[in-house]
């Protein structure tokens, strides 16, 4: 048996999606709006998911989201959510998995750098 240790540190340029990732790092939801059919999509994909157009402009969303489906692991939780204003949905990490709620807001999560995360709204709080 031979043991080899490989340590990798990737540097990944994001190209035309760079504004999305820069906004995400600030906790802001930057979506794409199709110049052809006005469809808004978040997260962005570089091509309109409805009409296939590549003429897309950046537009900011509120960052609030509605949970469609949620799955819990022994130590984390993830959800398929739709951000307000977007036509598509997104897989996100839930930053406060102890909370059971179907609404949340985009947050910067230290546990998933550059990944989408939402903090669920506690029942009774009115800030979402």
């Amino acid at each position: 048996m031979t043991t080899r240790r490989l340590t990798l540190e990737h540097s990944l340029p994001k190209g035309r999606l760079n504004p999305y990732f820069e906004a995400l790092a600030q906790g802001t939801a930057l979506a794409e709006c199709c110049g052809s059919c006005d469809r808004v999509q978040f997260p962005p994909g570089g091509i309109c998911g409805q009409c296939g157009a590549a003429d897309l402009a950046w537009t900011s969303l509120s960052g609030t989201a509605v949970v469609i489906h949620r799955t819990d692991t022994p130590d984390r939780a993830f959800a398929l959510v739709r951000f307000e204003g977007a036509r598509n949905s997104a897989v996100v990490a839930i930053a406060n998995p102890d909370v059971r709620s179907n609404r949340g807001r985009l947050v910067i999560s230290p546990t998933c750098a550059q990944g989408l995360a939402i903090e669920l709204k506690c029942k009774g709080s009115g800030d979402v």
Partner: peptide
């Protein structure tokens, strides 16, 4: 770049689809 950066596993992705 999106799903992967959240730390989501294959099982969680399949679970959401199954639901």
């Amino acid at each position: 770049w999106t799903d992967g950066f959240t730390g989501v596993s294959s099982t969680s992705i399949y679970a959401l689809s199954a639901m």
